[in-house]
Amino acid sequence: MSKKWNVGAAPARFLSMICLAAATMLPMAAAAAEAPEASPTAVWPGMRVSLFGTRPINDSAADIVELVAPSRAEDAATVPIGIHTKLVQSPDRYIKKLYLLVDNNPSPLAATFEMTPNSGRADIETRIRIEQYSDVRAVAELNDGSLHMASRFVKASGGCSAPAGKDPKEALRNAGKIKLRTDGPIEAGKPALAQLAVSHPNASGLVLDQVTRLYEPAYFVRKINVSYAGKPVMTADVNFSISENPNFRFYFLPTGEGDLHAEVVDTKDLTFNGDVVVKPDAVAAN
């Protein structure tokens, strides 16, 4: 039922958007003229129906999900986003899917993250591009099928049509490098924090080359599978709304010595892998 957003159609549909002021265009960024605030009703109702049909969505869900985002972005191509969840992932009750939506982006569904009880906690930290002033939403779907939403209005513009990167040649050269690491103590049975960083231009395909009059081809990470000890902990479908050099922080539940493995697939169907051996600290493992 949930219809896939057609990424390929985005450049044509949002042609006019490309010429919008780009907040990342230095050095006049801070003098950005105030863009009109987009009406929150413009995009959301249609998107809501196509993704969730008529299912009720709890929008006072502070006890389940919280969205952390700056009210004004420093750099529209690199807007830090935190989805903080308030429940322990247990086999009985857990968040099975998170939707990250940017209403006014060319492709509003920026990411979905599928979680399991082995995720420990369903939190996600990442960075996104924002094309124009927009509501940003996190919708948490529980294993019982209920939907819970948190949203924030973020002032930023030009993030998607900004030229990819500060050094595009180097970005292409380094595409596919992966860093996977755990942060903080590892204790068996306690959610542990992991960070996945992928070196990738994550190009939106929305930048018009003014000389050739052609759009630079879209080239971005589209799929991420992270497993621990062979079991999935986080599976993400993402697109160019994620910033250059995609970066994700998430949790997993260590149980003993095991391999944390990340597989990243991009739109050229190139696959990149990262691994880290997880050893719970002896003290906590007793």
Binding site: I18, C19, L20, A21, A22, M25, M28, A31, A33, G158, S161, A162, P163, A164, P168, K169, V207, L208, D209, Q210, V211, T212, E216
Partner: peptide
């Protein structure tokens, strides 16, 4: 030598921003 690529990628956005600024 990297100026033409930077210009190609940025000119449109710079131009519309300039009028606004």
């Amino acid at each position: 030598a990297s100026f033409p690529a930077a210009l190609a990628a940025r000119r449109g956005a710079y131009q519309s921003r300039l009028a606004q600024t």
